[in-house]
């Protein structure tokens, strides 16, 4: 990828650690001359991907690996946890759950938001954890 810059980080499970990633993205964007209003949706995608990963990460020292590859045109976000994994196909659409009268639980929007707000989304999950890849066009 021409003129791409990459930022890699390993985030421990501590409150609001996703803001470190948001700060990193902001600095990459400024370096590339990308206006902050162009990365608003990317900020939400990153936040959701990281809190989702931290929720599913396991073990004594849960951590999440995050990698951004950014050009002036687009951003690729890779988020990986090392938890037990889950079957994404069994995660109910929260909008459908609510329509069906699925109680007062209004949580569980992360996957829906990532799929809807991204330009490309993939998830693979197994016994060794979950890997989410998101592409967001910036220009």
């Amino acid at each position: 990828m021409k003129d791409a810059i990459t930022l890699k980080m390993s985030l421990p499970k501590i409150p609001d650690i996703e803001l470190v990633a948001i700060e990193g993205l902001d600095r990459l964007a400024r370096h590339l001359g990308i206006a902050s209003d162009k990365i608003g949706e990317a900020n939400i995608l990153i936040t959701e991907a990281i809190i989702n990963a931290l929720e599913h990460s396991g073990g004594e020292h849960p951590e999440v690996k995050v990698e951004f590859t950014m050009t002036k045109q687009d951003l690729v976000i890779l988020v990986r946890d090392f938890g037990k994994g889950f079957d994404p196909s069994t995660v109910a659409d929260p909008a459908e759950r609510k329509k069906a009268g699925g109680g007062k639980n209004n949580r569980g929007w992360g996957l829906k938001l990532m799929k809807t707000m991204s330009d490309d989304f993939s998830i693979s999950s197994g016994d060794d954890g979950t890997r989410i890849t998101i592409k967001k066009i910036l220009s």
Binding site: E18, L19, N43, I44, T47, K104, N106, R107, W109, L113
Partner: peptide
Amino acid sequence: SKVVNSIGMSFLIDIVD
């Protein structure tokens, strides 16, 4: 509030309900 997450916003869904 330029950065929010879906858990925080779920409280607002509760309020709207």
